[in-house]
Design a protein around this nucleic acid. Structure first.
Length: 869
DNA sequence: CTGAATGAAAT
DNA sequence: ATTTCATTCAG
């Protein structure tokens, strides 16, 4: 069975196929699982970050602020330099945190293997493996208890529980949809990919379905036939939504039941899924499927209804309707008791699988049908190579898909839009990526601000709220003030409810935030981001990410923060929604508590160490939503996530964030310590940076390649490099005589950090083989370059000139090197190297300030001259 | 998807 | 001793 199913992915299927598809998928999944890879390939949690990565994560934003143009690679280099200079003591913090993180992670995932590999599942290559990497924390052990022991499935070392996580939302149905939505929101682009590759988690999905099914039943309480269930589900769903939208806070009442049963079921679900390693699915699955299917429909229908209710005109794809509205118009209680939903209509329609009310609604319904197709799509998925190359190969083989992953092209299917809308909380709005969700945003602390929407459009009412928000934001920045936030939220909600256009609210916020940003220097990113968001649909994820960074950065410069938060808030909203739905029990708890302000408390409580509970918790809550995410999950930062995340975040934030200046100083000091010369360096340092360096590299490569250096291995060179590598600043270099250089060289060696340290991989090396010409492959060139650097001692003063821009310019023009004679003299190389060194030195020292040296003229000429020599 | 860096773990 | 992979995100 499995063989058949999994192997292929059904490209597209009609509606009818849905069930079929699912079935196949399941089988496939099962097969995969059975194959044994289950654990590994399934959804592996991401490995915990090491100290350096934590450091990078924490400081990258800073680096980028300083060097906006610098790309990540360059930033990484700088970060590496910083890291290198970081004092042990300081590093220790990161190291410790990393350790804690790791320990916690391991606790959560007892059998976790960093390198799953080994199994190379032949599998259908792309699929199963495809997603492999799920999210970081694998999830769950039981929420209640953490211990790994709980983990039910010891099957393999990897986590068994994953199953649940693995479950493919798309297949799951309404609930899954919600999850999906959440994820979608989180990672818009990824979603598409996820969907497509049903493959990935076949087994999991499979389980998920059955489990889901059960869940559905539970929630409904009555085991009624699917049809009836549907209604119930619908109602409940609406209710939950209403709750969420309406309040996140308070009220107690409404949801208790809902909430209660939903939640527990979830856990059960998780357990079930995990426990049943592979259910016999056949029977269950069918039932499950149908049930799920229906459920999904219901959900859609309900949504459609809402939409309709809100917006009389269904036609618009993206009418700006808000989900919340629905809440507004209905009482949760009422809903529960008797669903009167459908102002607009569709209840009946909804009931029928077909769906459909209006075109728009049809769209919504469509998704369901379509869903399968999506799944079938290839998936580019991001997962890197998770399973190693095989997966990659597979992907490649499949070819086409890649792009899809990046942007959710899947848009074709309305589903996406729907999902997004749901995620955002704004149904109608769907298309506009930017707006953050109005929703409950605040569940946590941090993020109330929305800045993205650059356009303020109309800002409807709610001015008050804005101010309040601003204040709140500020406060939050300083400290998270939940209460206010909450209040604001409520206000917003109300407002939203009053008006269908929640967008405005957001805009307002955005408008405000811009100001702040404007004030701040660092906004560039933000701005860009914003722009992007407007432009692109998938932006949200990025935005979120950025937000995270921003937060980190904020610590240092609080001002800047405004923009990102919005994203976060969006996320929070999503989570909230999910929670409200009962999908994330733990979250809900948190949310509730959080509203009261507990968040902080909780954090503080655990502050010290990662509690098992916390981890568990977090995993549980987080994992669900994230599963889909695969690559980027960004769990930590998520606003509404569980304690774990909070803790993580908190800890992460607590990590010292060193300002560039600090590093500069350090460099200086270090240099001084090591060598006297360094002093100069420090002063002179400028922001030059990696980027330029990289470009130079390119140039150098070319040059080098021309005369083909010989050094295949950097090793030999290393020494030399070490020697020369002084970080001397341009000025210094100029001035500095070779002799000093030598001294510095040592120092440099110290500073040297790693950049070039690492050996190239074999594969790469292979890659490096010389060409017939005798040229070296790029890699080699680099090495050669390095060598040259080593030698750099030479006196090329001018080179030092290269600044970021200067360098760029130079680079641009450069090319000249090609013309150079094949036989570059060592001296010439040395010069080149010197340039590089300079670069490096600057970089190392790099100061934020930009000014500088532009006096230096382009080095290209110099280079040439050198070459001539 | 790649890469740039470091580090932990696995092979 | 060598590979993977974790984070980030522009190319």
């Amino acid at each position: 069975m499995k063989g058949g199913g999994r192997g292929k992915e059904p490209p597209v299927e009609g509606e009818g196929t849905v069930l079929c598809v699912q079935t196949e998928g399941k089988e496939a999944a099962c097969g995969a699982v059975e194959e044994g890879e289950e654990d590994t390939s399934e959804q592996r949690a991401r490995r915990p970050m090491n100290a350096f990565l934590l450091f990078c994560k924490r400081h990258r934003s800073l680096v980028r602020q300083e060097h906006p143009r610098l790309d990540n690679r360059g930033a990484t280099k700088i970060l590496a330099d910083w890291w290198a200079v970081l004092e042990p003591k300081e590093k220790q913090k990161y190291t410790d945190m990393a350790k804690e993180y790791k320990d916690a992670f391991m606790k959560a995932n007892p059998g976790y293997k960093w390198c799953p590999t080994t199994n190379k599942p032949v599998k259908s290559s792309s699929q199963a493996v495809g997603n492999a990497r799920k999210k970081v924390w694998s999830f769950p052990t039981n929420p209640t208890k953490d211990p790994p022991v709980t983990k039910k499935v010891p099957k393999t070392d990897n986590k068994p529980q994953l199953n649940f996580a693995m479950a493919d939302p798309t297949k799951m149905g309404g609930l899954s949809l919600l999850l999906l939505a959440g994820e979608h929101a989180l990672t818009a682009r990824e979603l598409s990919s996820n969907t497509s590759p049903a493959v990935v988690t076949n087994a999991t999905k499979h389980h998920g379905k059955s489990a889901l099914f059960q869940l559905a039943e539970i929630s409904s309480n009555t085991h009624r036939p699917p049809a009836e269930c549907k209604q119930e589900e619908e109602e409940s769903t609406l209710g939950s939504l209403a709750e969420s939208s309406g309040n996140s806070v308070p009220g107690p009442a409404v949801s208790p039941k809902n909430h209660g049963h939903a939640a527990s079921p979830l856990f059960q679900l998780a357990e079930i899924s995990s426990s049943t390693s592979k259910p016999s699915v056949s029977d269950g699955k069918q039932c499950g499927q149908s049930a799920l299917f229906q459920l999904a429909e219901m959900c859609l229908a309900s949504e459609a209804e809402k939409r309709g209710a809100l917006c009389p005109q269904p036609a618009g794809d993206s009418a700006p309707v808000l989900p919340e509205d629905s809440s507004t118009h209905m009482d949760p209680m009422d809903q529960r008791d008797s669903p009167d939903l459908p102002p607009s209509a569709p209840s009946s329609s909804s009931s029928s699988s077909s769906s459909s009310t209006s075109p728009s609604s049809s769209a919504s319904s469509t998704p369901t049908d379509k869903t399968p197709p999506l799944l079938s799509q290839p998936k580019n998925v991001k997962k890197k190579k998770k399973d190693c190359k095989e997966s990659l190969k597979a992907d490649k083989t499949q070819g086409s898909v890649k792009k899809a992953s990046k942007k959710r092209q899947s848009s074709e299917s309305d589903l996406d839009s729907v999902i997004e809308a749901v995620a955002k909380g704004t149904w109608g709005a769907g298309e506009t990526p930017r707006k953050k969700a109005r929703v409950p945003v605040s569940d946590k602390s941090p993020s109330p601000e929305p800045q993205h929407s650059p356009k303020k459009k109309t800002k409807p009412k709610v001015k008050k709220p804005l101010k309040a928000k601003e204040e709140a934001l500020e406060e939050e920045e300083e400290e998270e003030e939940e209460e206010e936030v909450v209040v604001q939220k409520e206000e917003e909600e109300e407002e939203d409810g009053g008006k269908p256009q929640d967008l405005p609210v957001v805009k307002e916020e955005s408008a405000i935030s811009p100001k702040r940003d404007g004030v701040e220097a660092p906004c560039e990113k933000t701005d860009s981001l914003v722009g992007r968001e407007d432009m692109e649909p998938h932006s949200p994820l990025e935005a979120l990410v950025k937000c995270e960074e921003r937060d980190a950065a904020d610590i240092k410069t609080p001002e800047s923060c405004g923009s990102r938060k919005s994203e976060r808030s969006c996320k929070g909203a999503l989570y909230k929604t999910l929670v409200s739905e009962g999908m994330l029990t733990s979250l809900r708890a948190n949310v509730d508590r959080g509203k009261r302000g507990s968040i902080r408390g909780s954090v503080s409580d655990q502050e010290g160490a990662w509690t098992d509970e916390a981890w568990t918790f977090a995993q549980t809550s987080a994992s669900n939503p994230k599963k889909l995410k695969k690559s980027k999950s960004k769990d930590e930062t998520a606003p509404g996530l569980g304690k774990l995340e909070e803790e993580f975040e908190k800890k992460f934030n607590s990590l010292p964030q060193y300002s560039p200046l600090t590093f500069d100083k350090k460099n200086t000091s270090v240099a001084k310590k090591k060598k006297p010369c360094s002093t100069i360096l420090a002063d002179q340092v400028k922001p030059t940076k990696g980027s330029s360096a990289s470009q130079k590299k390119t140039l150098f490569h070319k040059i080098v390649s021309k005369y083909k250096h010989k050094k295949e291995k950097p090793n030999t060179l290393d020494k030399a490099i070490a020697v020369c590598q002084s970080p001397v600043p341009e000025a210094v270099q100029k001035d500095t005589p070779c002799g000093q250089v030598a001294l510095e060289a040592q120092r440099a060696a110290d500073m040297l950090v790693g950049s070039q340290k690492r050996k190239a991989r074999k594969s790469k090396i292979t890659h490096l083989v010389r060409t017939a010409d005798g040229r070296l492959s790029p890699a080699e060139e680099d090495k050669a370059k390095e060598l040259s650097q080593d030698k750099d001692e030479k006196p090329c003063t001018e080179e030092s000139l290269c600044n970021e821009e200067g360098c760029y310019a130079a680079v641009d023009r450069r090319d000249a090197p090609e013309g150079l004679p094949a036989f570059f003299s060592l001296a010439a190389l040395a010069e080149v190297a010197a340039m590089e060194n300079v670069h490096r030195g600057q970089r190392a020292v790099s100061l934020p300030s930009e000014g500088q040296a532009k006096d230096m003229s382009p080095q290209t000429p110099v280079l040439i001259s050198c070459a001539d020599q």
